[in-house]
Design a protein around this nucleic acid. Structure first.
Lengths: 339, 339
DNA sequence: TGCAGTGATGTTGCCGAGAACAGCTCTGTA
DNA sequence: TACAGAGCTGTTCTCGGCAACATCACTGCA
């Protein structure tokens, strides 16, 4: 029997090699002051020699802190939530936290509450929910948990810490862009209205068009998918009265352009189209899409910063708004009558 | 002082309420046999009453099992890796496992080894690496860990458990489709050749065109981005000799179509184009893209099934191949001379 | 009647860390 | 010379579970 234990070394074995108590090793690991440099060196050498790594489960048990953040993300297939999740993970790692993630897929029967519970059992220090739907926000409101909770959603909320991408400003940028080109009659194809982002974009569209004195026209309620917008376009039998379409996301914008094309209409000459998201392909579809770019990186940083502050019980504002910018491309042009 | 402890109940408090020892509670929690139905009921009632949830960190410490799978994913922005990760997470949850994820972003200085170590410290039962590059696979070969390790990559590998999407079959389907349409001169725009998927698709392209007796033509090595393919197309000053292009992913296919369009060439009338991935927008870009659909769901299930078997030390094949299918759309048509 | 077998439950100790407190060794000062 | 206080390190206990073994009450059978 070879004496080099094949199993993972623990803090006491390190202590034996270094000729100190395990608490001294623990102090070195946690950067406590008042450790003699020579002792520290011996401990570090022993750690090196054994290739020791602390057991985080044991540490979590002892400290009641896991340095782990739970993230719940809905419709993880979509571009927005995925990008947000990835940005949070990166920012969390930068702050020394890891991420435990649960994706709520449609119809897999996992309720937001169950997801919260499952994460809490894993011992998270804080919870972040990427909650695009009002129904899930309502469900969250009833959840009581013992760690800080932050929600990424379209608007501020007194119940939670909140980080929002500025949907309103983005929608206003798009409307202003179209109006500047000369459009006076714009159709809005929204996302499903129980999605907060859809609702925010729709409200911003209404209030901006109204304040600019533009014709009030009923919106079309879509479902975010390109298929929906394609089918809608295929239902048009002649060029409509409106001269521009504001689709609530890029996917619908692309589907719409596809359908218009199949119906023999040209974008942007017959109709201008804008989207929202700036998905990677938005720049290269035909015609390239005017859209809104969201700063996911800034969002991830803000989420982690706010959660850290909450964990450490520092005072911070409970709300952060992330700016957006418009990206102007060939899918928008002045309407015919102006040219 | 109210006696209802504001802090989380533990197994001993449950035991007191139920009037049993804490081990009986543990047995109920873990579905041991030989518990009297009446006792079980009392324990469950006490759990309910206290709203007790087991502490998974403590359980992991005691059992040396975390029911957590580590996943390392490279270039998490890309469609493929993201879809794979999401599929694995879903399948893992179905099997009662959670997922600890680390994304390797380009240039964030985290090596695959460091990622492995970081996950091991978190106490994972098994490791899955979504490793698209040969360099990372080479790095992994030198990693020694004490848990089962599975790599999702383009081909089988004696070193690891492996799950592969059948890149070869997919590429063959595309070549055969083009040849069936009458194309005899096809350009391949590959991904970066240190990516295993790119390499596999390129090799399949070569071997299939060769065995069909089609003109050998040097490939163009791309970088997966639509921008690259766009620029490539913009460099064409006249219609090339080849009549079809096999782009190694959808993004490059779309960028290429964009560039060809800007140069005044028409797809598919001047040139047929195929991609690989079937991204959500592939169906709605103009023209809709002929491409390869990969079964990510099946992949996720296979990954989790193989890892479970390895964790439980059951015998299983060390390699699973996931099939692909071709989706034929309007970006491909017979070449001019055939019509 | 005695006893082995088994079903149901309890007792003790350990997993690998950190907290709290105790204790030792200096140093400087009265 | 005594002693306070700071710096450094050790001892013991705890976190919340589970494994291993111990115990006890039945049951069935020789």
């Amino acid at each position: 029997m070879v004496s080099v234990g094949s199993h993972k070394p623990n803090i006491r074995q390190v202590a034996v090699i270094a000729g100190v108590s395990h608490m001294t090793v623990s102090r070195v690991l946690n950067d406590h002051p008042n450790i003699k440099p020579d002792t520290r060196r011996r401990v570090l050498e022993a750690i090196e020699e054994l290739d020791y790594r602390p057991n985080l489960a044991a540490r979590a048990l002892a400290t009641q802190r896991s340095r782990r953040i739970g993230v719940i993300v809905e419709s993880s297939g979509a571009f927005g939530p995925t990008s947000i999740l990835s940005a949070i993970e990166l920012a969390a790692r930068g702050a020394g936290y890891s991420v435990a993630q649960i994706a709520l897929h449609e119809g897999d029967g996992l309720s937001p509450q169950a997801a919260v519970e499952s994460l809490m059992m894993q011992g998270i220090d804080a919870l972040c929910v990427i909650a695009p739907r009002s129904s899930s926000v309502a469900a969250l409101r009833r959840v009581v948990i013992s760690v800080p909770m932050l929600v990424v959603k379209a608007d501020a909320d007194p119940t939670f810490l909140t980080v929002s991408i500025d949907q309103h400003a983005g929608a206003v940028l798009l409307v202003d862009h179209l109006v500047a080109l000369g459009h006076r009659d714009i159709l809005h194809i929204s996302g499903p209205l129980d999605w907060l982002d859809a609702r925010a974009r729709e409200r911003a569209f209404h209030s901006r068009t109204k304040s600019l004195g533009i014709r009030e026209r009923p919106i079309v309620v879509g479902d975010w998918t390109a298929d929906f917008a394609y089918d809608f376009a295929m239902g048009l039998n002649r060029l409509p009265d409106y001269t521009a379409v504001f689709a609530a996301n890029d996917e619908m914008a692309v589907g719409l352009i596809h359908g218009l094309h199949d119906k023999g209409f040209d974008v942007p000459n017959d109709l201008s189209v804008v989207g929202f998201d700036d998905v990677p392909l938005a720049r290269h579809v035909l015609p390239p899409l005017t859209t809104i770019r969201q700063n996911f990186h800034a969002l991830g940083v803000a989420v982690v910063e706010m959660l850290r502050a909450a964990i450490e019980e520092r005072e911070i504002p409970a709300f952060t708004r992330i700016p957006t910018e418009i990206v102007t491309r060939a899918s928008t042009a002045p309407p015919r009558e102006v040219r």
